[in-house]
Amino acid sequence: MLELSDVHRYLRWKKRFPTVWCPGCGIGSIMGAIIRAVMDLNISKDDVALVSGIGCSSRMPVYVDFNTLHTTHGRAIPFATGIKLVRPDMKVIVVSGDGDALAIGGNHFIHAARRNIGITMILINNSIYGMTGGQVAPTTPLGAFAHTMPYGNIDPDFNPVELAMAAGATFVARSTVYSIVQTTNYIKKALQHQGFSLVEIISQCPVLFGRLNKMPDPKQLLKWQKDNSIPLAKAKNMSPEELEGKIITGIFREEDKMEYTQRYAELVKRVQSELED
């Protein structure tokens, strides 16, 4: 068991707490998972840059004692790209919500995956816009209710895992807040991975998504995560109909391909050696 003080060493708890997150929100658990992953890997706090955009989860940088950058809506990835290119030695983590990463920031997401740049993206998917008060997201299930879908959502939802894989991400995993130990392990693997890594974490928003969709108690949402999670190995033997509305968890891809800043360093080496000749 970890001592409480171990996690506290990574938090700006003296100055910045309490957080803005509602009681029962999943983001705090994920913040804990990120800290535990960094701690277990013995990564120095000075070597971590945590970059976010706008939204509930994007408030995380304020509370964590890393080099933290809280940027504009949807744009965390390109800011992180600039940092990673200048400091390839640093662990650059982007923490993003589903609206931030997939709606306004969707283009940056696919291009970072395409380049295979060494950024770890923690995508916290709570199926709704929380910070602005419960509007529909690209991940809101069909038929679910949101303040901008008062008659039920008619927009089909995105599958970020499939999107990342199609775009070329080399580490792709999905987990839930309910399975927080598995989540921590996936984040650890992602942080060790060379190349663009995505960990999608299904989270709960009891105050907005839950209340609008008849699951106002966080326990109901966590139970829903538990009851609907299907490990990838098991899902492979199931039909699309059986998997409808389920959360498939696991590591979908773990592939060794040259990371972008390494590729760039090789280009520099090649150009400079040609100059010398």
Partner: peptide, 24 residues
Amino acid sequence: GGTFIQMEDEIASIAAIIGASAAG
């Protein structure tokens, strides 16, 4: 030994140079 990157759009371009500047 400097870095050039063509980003996916202008929004990403300006973001990347601000991130790079933050990294020194």
